[in-house]
């Protein structure tokens, strides 16, 4: 655990040293703030004191920004050779993957914590549904774990950051949109199947304030699968 924390701390420090963290925080807050408060699906038009609009926008921002956070985690290390140095320390492949995962989740948590003024603002306007808000944030966090795991897997299979970014976005696209669209286009068990895979429906059910173990299992399975595949792809160096 200590090792995982050491790696996570380094990742976080690197983010803040290299300005990436600030850029991502500013973009995330700017993007989600703009669409929540100023443009289009305006939070004031709903007529209710809730943050549903924000949660929806934030799910989209995270969908784009998480691959940008994770893209360099392993791709860059592989490219510069520092991965060799890291993995020859007394560290296991799993600890490296988990450390990187924890580091990027912490950055996401910082970004989400920076949106707390939104909560304060809305709770001043009307009677905020506290349970719903907490569930919304929990949903965003679960969605982030899933996309981070996918991003880390994508970063582990290449030495090129752009390829890692695109791959993560491509895999993410299936969960974020395509499975949902397919679920609408098919009926019967196939439709049911795609609906189960659709991330949006799981996210919405949580952010509506319904905590179902089915949704938790869904997000945790994607996360674990992503991390496992990342570890597997690191360990492939032993064979070839």
């Amino acid at each position: 655990m200590h090792t995982i924390w050491t790696i996570a701390k380094r990742e976080l420090a690197t983010f803040f040293d290299s300005l990436i963290a600030y850029i991502i925080l500013v973009l995330f807050l700017g993007f989600s703030g703009f669409f929540t408060w100023l443009y289009g699906n305006d939070i004031f038009l709903v007529g209710q004191a809730n943050l549903r609009v924000f949660f929806n926008i934030a799910s989209w921002s995270l969908f784009f920004f998480i691959p940008a956070i994770t893209m360099k985690m392993l791709a860059e290390e592989r490219k510069t050779g520092t991965l060799e140095l890291l993995l020859t320390k007394s560290v296991s492949d799993r600890q490296v993957i988990l450390g990187k995962f924890l580091g990027s989740i912490l950055l996401v948590c910082i970004a989400l914590a920076a949106t707390l003024p939104y909560v304060i603002t809305v709770s001043n306007i009307g009677n905020l549904d506290n349970g719903g808000t907490i569930c919304g944030y929990l949903g965003l966090l679960l969605l982030s774990t899933a996309y981070t795991a996918i991003g880390i897997f994508a970063s582990s299979i290449t030495t090129n950051q752009i390829v890692a970014f695109m791959t993560a976005l491509f895999i993410g696209l299936f969960f974020h949109i395509i499975f949902g669209v397919l679920a609408h286009n098919f009926t019967g068990s196939l439709g049911q199947f795609f609906d189960t895979l659709d991330l949006q429906s799981h996210f919405e059910s949580i952010s509506r304030g319904v905590l179902d173990s089915k949704d938790l299992v869904y997000f945790l399975s994607i996360t674990l699968l992503g991390l496992y595949l990342g570890e597997w792809s690191l360990s492939k160096r032993h064979i070839s």
Partner: peptide, 20 residues
């Protein structure tokens, strides 16, 4: 290979921590 964006002391501290 080294982490170029890390200060020397932080890097050595990181390595020492990983190596127990």
């Amino acid at each position: 290979p080294l982490y170029l964006d890390m200060p020397i002391i932080d890097y050595l501290e990181f390595c020492a921590a990983l190596q127990g």
